[in-house]
Amino acid sequence: MRGIHTLLRLLAAVFVAHLLCSTGTAKVTAGKIKKFLDTDNHTNNWAVLVCTSRFWFNYRHIANTLSMYRTVKRMGIPDSHIILMLADDVACNPRNCFPATVFDHPQKTTDLYGDNVEVDYRGYEVTVENFIRLLTGRVTTNTPRNKRLLTDDKSNIFIYMTGHGGEDFLKFQDSEEINSYDIADAMQQMWEKQRYREILFVIDTCQANTMFSKFYAPNVLSIGSSEKGENSYSHYHDRDIGVSVIDRFTYYNLKFFESVDMSSKHTMADLISTYNISLIHSTPGVRTDLFARELEKTYLTDFFGAVQEIELTAEPYPIGKNSVS
């Protein structure tokens, strides 16, 4: 990947030099050349959405994940850049009185399951091993494209996890656990292998903030739903379905995102400022010491959007044989 970037930079330099020599004009400034050759900005966004629970009574965790999936798609990230790990066992569960549907609100205005959900890791494929292999790229040669995180050093990655957890661990389908050291080491491997530029890690579980306490890889912004010793609480019990349909922390994050679109200038600081302990019933945590940018200057679309910036000029550029823009 680094060799490709070097080749592109050399080709760009040759192109700009040719323009300067052929026109003899000063319109191509040093600043424009630097901006043209600058490859530090990120070029793509990815999302890894993981529900680590299964069984009917964990309906809300599936709804959490599908709600976040719907949001990142609405913000512009295509399915080709979303990895969805889901037990996928409630929509067609015999106890579901609304077959083939998943809702996150008792009013049932939005069917999260819908007709356009692409689950990449389903059922018993949602394991600790598969999750770590996905992040680090250590998948087998016969792994299909939709099960690969095809990121590079220009990728921003949003990782969302929800399920049952405790201090420094998160359960995977009641059969195994992943701990904070496992994820921390996986992210360091990702950094060493140039698999990301920045990571936004969000987790909704009991004692969630302990899950990013061991992180040490750079350029990682972490947000959790609850402090050590605190539970993460459910929201909106549905009497028809018979279970709670979403967790409080995820619900209030999604409520903020409903007012955001792909052209939004809202920042991570704007999102975090909306956290209200009296509504969430736990203490959200934010870890910024590994993140290089200020939250006030980090747009939500830096992780969720798929819109490229367009530079508009006040003066029209001449189009002709000897003109340069």
Rank of each mutant, 00 (worst) to 15 (best):
T110H: 09
L170T: 04
F15C: 07
V324I: 13
Y299R: 04
K154W: 04
D111L: 11
E198G: 01
I132T: 15
A91T: 03
N322M: 08
P316Y: 06
T298A: 01
H42T: 11
E311T: 08
R239K: 07
S213Q: 13
K27G: 03
T23V: 10
L112W: 06
S222T: 09
N156S: 02
I277M: 08
D289N: 10
V117N: 07
H105N: 13
E129T: 13
S226N: 02
A17D: 10
T141N: 12
L66R: 14
N209F: 00
H235M: 04
G224N: 14
T141S: 14
D240T: 00
V324C: 15
S226H: 03
G123M: 09
A47K: 01
E167C: 11
S226L: 01
I199D: 04
N219H: 09
T6Q: 12
T301E: 14
V16P: 02
T65F: 12
L149W: 08
I33C: 12
N253C: 11
V286C: 12
G31D: 10
Y121E: 15
S213W: 06
T6F: 14
L290T: 15
A47N: 01
S259N: 14
Y59C: 01
K154I: 02
K214Y: 13
L170K: 12
S278H: 11
S225G: 13
I83G: 03
G76M: 15
Q207Y: 00
W191H: 12
Y233P: 03
L7Q: 03
D270V: 04
D38E: 01
T141W: 15
K297G: 03
T25G: 09
K108R: 13
V50N: 06
P106R: 02
S53H: 07
K73V: 00
A63M: 01
I83F: 02
D204Q: 11
H18F: 05
D79T: 12
D261H: 15
R74T: 06
D261C: 08
L290P: 03
D104E: 14
K297L: 03
S22N: 03
S213E: 08
T109D: 15
A87Y: 09
R60V: 00
I62N: 13
I319P: 00
S234M: 00
L279E: 06
I203S: 05
L86R: 01
